[in-house]
């Protein structure tokens, strides 16, 4: 961790127009929650809606990975694409510190965008009932964006098309393929996040059923994040200045 690089990364993210896009995306759950509050049919079940459609649905499957992907690629990918990464790399700062600084800032930015909106949306829908659901998904989102940020940091260093590669992972691997091959749940950050969230509430299986138990989900999440960060450091140590091959 290097405070100067962290500060630089934070300024990079704040200065980018994509941040506005991300904030809009992150606020979507609040808008949905307000709509639910005012327009939902009388027979709707708030717990089911919060766990299945909102927090366990669009927030975890779409908004969480997208927001983290945009911030992680914005923190590192942009720097490498523009060629400015050289100014950080041509210093004796250990590569581990550079990776950690960028990863932590990307994670913190994602949390700042995701958590307040998700918690607010959950509270609006549930209105005080089922606090475990809100707390569970808050922890799940925090853990999920931790692993996503690590994975996408590595992708940003490893490939110039990190954004598309990340989309492929999120929507093709975690979205489509994991529905067909249930073993993929062990290799899916989304399932780690919902599995960890599941530790905090107990809903009937017909309402919401995580596909991983909390303990293995947490262990796998920690292992995956550590592996991704290790790969990211390794890749940065071997980073080569881009020249058209």
């Amino acid at each position: 961790m290097n405070p100067d690089i962290a500060r630089l990364t934070a300024r990079t993210l704040l200065g980018q127009r994509r941040t506005i896009l991300v904030v809009l995306l992150a606020l979507l759950p609040v808008a949905i929650a307000l709509l639910y509050r005012f327009a939902a049919p009388a027979d709707a079940d708030p717990e089911r809606f919060a766990a299945r459609a909102l927090l366990g649905g669009i927030v975890t499957t779409t908004i969480l990975p997208l927001v983290t992907l945009i911030f992680a690629t914005g923190a590192f990918g942009q720097d490498i694409e523009d060629g400015t990464a050289v100014y950080l790399l041509a210093t004796p700062v250990p590569r581990r510190d550079i990776v950690l600084a960028r990863f932590l800032v990307a994670w913190a930015a994602s949390l700042a965008a995701l958590l307040p909106a998700a918690v607010a949306a959950g509270l609006i829908v549930l209105g005080g009932s089922g606090p475990g659901i809100v707390a569970g998904f808050a922890v799940g989102i925090a853990a999920g964006s931790f692993v996503y940020a690590a994975a996408f940091t590595w992708l940003s260093i490893a490939t110039s098309r990190a954004l598309v590669a990340g989309l492929l992972y999120v929507f093709l691997w975690e979205g489509t393929l994991s529905g067909l091959f249930s073993g993929i749940r062990f290799l899916s950050i989304r399932q780690y996040a919902t599995g960890i969230a599941g530790a905090f509430f107990d809903l009937p299986a017909s309402v919401f059923q995580p596909r991983l138990e909390p303990a293995p989900a947490a262990v796998l999440a920690a292992l995956a994040a550590a592996l991704m960060l290790l790969l990211a450091v390794r890749r940065l140590q071997r980073w080569e200045a881009g020249e058209a091959a």
Partner: peptide, 19 residues
């Protein structure tokens, strides 16, 4: 990506609760 993939779950929710 957002035009295709964020609108998909969003429309599902809106149709469900939007009346």
């Amino acid at each position: 990506a957002a035009w295709f993939l964020v609108t998909l779950p969003l429309a599902g929710i809106l149709v469900e609760i939007g009346g």
